[in-house]
Amino acid sequence: MATHNPPILTLAGAQTALSASIQRAQAISVPMNVAVVDASLHLLAFARMDGAKLTSVDIAVNKAFTAAGHRVPTSSYKDKVVPGSAVWGINWTNGGRFSTIGGGVPIVKDGVVVGAVGCSTGTPAQDEDVATAGVEAVVKSFAPKAKL
């Protein structure tokens, strides 16, 4: 077959992720920049919570870009990006958009990465926690509805 129809992340799905991420950020009292990208790495939804760092806007978008594009959480690079390693300098690729800081988490449906959530303002662990909440909410929405 020359073409196929992979699952896609809709605006409604992105808004579900955004909302859940914001709720988690509020629960841990850390205002966040939250970005959701689709499988083509383009921004689908974004929110900057009151008090979120202005310098973290691009970081959140780049974390989502990296997680969707490389299909792994950005935190997976934490201990790998050291001088002399095979991936040393990867953060300078893609026009400097490749992020090796925790807080970007891919969204997977039926084994296919359909997008990602990227968060920034807190620590990398806090950012990943908030992004994961968004991913879990949208993945839960993929579940088939029970017939009554």
Rank of each mutant, 00 (worst) to 15 (best):
L148C: 01
T100A: 15
A86R: 13
V138C: 05
S56Y: 04
Q15P: 06
G89V: 03
G89H: 03
G13N: 11
G95K: 00
L11R: 04
G118S: 08
V130E: 04
F46G: 08
N33K: 07
F142S: 06
K63I: 02
V112G: 10
G96I: 09
D110V: 08
P124Q: 11
A47N: 03
A17C: 08
N62M: 04
V117H: 00
L41W: 00
N5G: 09
A137Q: 02
P73K: 07
A20R: 06
G103E: 10
N94H: 10
L11H: 11
G13E: 09
M32N: 13
I90L: 15
H4P: 07
N33I: 12
G111W: 01
F65S: 00
K78Y: 04
V81L: 06
K80R: 15
S120W: 07
P7K: 04
K53C: 13
K140T: 10
N91H: 14
P83N: 03
G95R: 07
D110A: 14
V81W: 07
N94M: 14
K78T: 13
A146T: 14
S141R: 02
K53G: 15
R48G: 04
L148R: 14
P144R: 02
Q15N: 15
V81Y: 09
S141M: 00
I8G: 06
R71W: 08
A64D: 04
G84L: 11
D58V: 05
Y77E: 04
D129Q: 15
K145P: 06
I90H: 06
V117E: 02
R48P: 12
A125H: 12
S75V: 08
E128N: 13
V87C: 09
T16L: 02
S56E: 00
L44F: 11
V105Q: 05
K63G: 08
L9M: 10
V112T: 13
A52S: 14
F65D: 03
G134K: 00
M49R: 03
A146V: 14
W88T: 12
S75K: 01
L44W: 00
K78P: 00
F46H: 08
V36M: 10
I8M: 01
P106N: 01
G111I: 11
G69A: 02
V34W: 08
G134E: 05
S141Q: 13
L18P: 02
D79H: 12
A17Y: 11
K63E: 04
G102K: 11
D129N: 13
V108A: 04
A133V: 09
V114S: 01
G122L: 07
P83M: 14
V105P: 07
T132N: 10
K147E: 13
T74R: 12
V36Q: 07
G13Y: 06
A86T: 15
I59F: 14
V87G: 11
C119L: 09
V37P: 08
A67D: 04
G89F: 06
A86K: 15
A116I: 03
V37W: 01
A137P: 04
P73S: 14
V130W: 03
A2I: 09
W88N: 15
D127A: 06
G51K: 11
V37L: 10
G102C: 03
I8S: 07
G122C: 09
A125E: 15
G89K: 04
G95C: 08
L44M: 12
S21F: 02
H70G: 05
